[in-house]
């Protein structure tokens, strides 16, 4: 075909310009998915090779990071189906909008007297925070990472995971609560925070 070399050069240039800058983000995402640096490196490599081969399917100007994350996650899920991390299967499409999702964060009530603004979170070393994130069930972990680390919107996350926005919110809610509890327990254990003497005081903030 005439001009094929030019087309290839253009494609390569646009891929390098738009996709490659997201390599660190894809690596972080792969690390959170697989919890293994070796597997994460393989995932990043496979993600970018696949992305490059299907670069014609990417719509310029759309969220390139989401597109790469989707490829990465699909590769990861396929690998997992072959037998990895079966420990972490969580009920898909958990019911949303339960009564327990309203009201005050019970953990916040526990620290209200000692550290109401959660300064203890800042005392916890990154490695410990990452360990806690990695211990979350995959569905919660993915939602928390995409929202809290990568700053993606509910709509973007819902589209990427192919679930309703309500499911994204529910997973974020549960994932954050779990993570906060783990970090709180760690902070108490390390003496960053005094353990709350009573945890029963869940009150309505405006009652």
């Amino acid at each position: 075909m005439p001009g094929n070399a030019d087309v290839d050069a253009d494609r390569k240039a646009s891929f390098q310009r738009e996709a490659l800058p997201h390599m660190d983000a894809v690596y972080r995402f792969a690390l959170r998915l697989s919890a293994s640096p070796d597997q994460a490196q393989d995932l990043v490599q496979d993600t970018f090779l696949r992305a490059y081969r299907s670069w014609d399917q990417y719509t310029p100007g759309t969220q390139c990071k989401s597109w790469l994350f989707t490829i990465c996650r699909n590769l990861y899920l396929r690998q997992r189906e072959r037998g990895q991390r079966h420990d972490e299967i969580v009920t898909a499409n958990a019911p949303v909008g339960q009564a327990s999702e309203g009201g005050v964060n019970p953990l916040w009530s526990a620290v209200e007297g000692s550290d109401p603004e959660g300064e203890f979170f800042g005392s916890i070393v990154d490695a410990e925070v990452l360990t806690a994130i990695d211990a979350l069930p995959e569905e919660y972990r993915t939602a928390v990472v995409l929202s809290d680390v990568e700053g993606m919107s509910y709509d973007e996350i819902a589209a990427m995971l192919d679930v309703p926005v309500g499911t994204v919110k529910s997973r974020l809610f549960r994932g954050r609560r779990r993570l906060q509890k783990v970090l709180y327990d760690y902070a108490v254990e390390m003496g960053y925070l005094a353990a709350a003497t009573s945890e029963g005081g869940v009150r309505d903030p405006h009652g």
Partner: peptide, 13 residues
């Protein structure tokens, strides 16, 4: 409190 939590997650992540 929630902001402090998110800042810790973001910094680590």
């Amino acid at each position: 409190f929630e902001e402090a939590f998110r800042a810790a997650i973001q910094r680590a992540g």
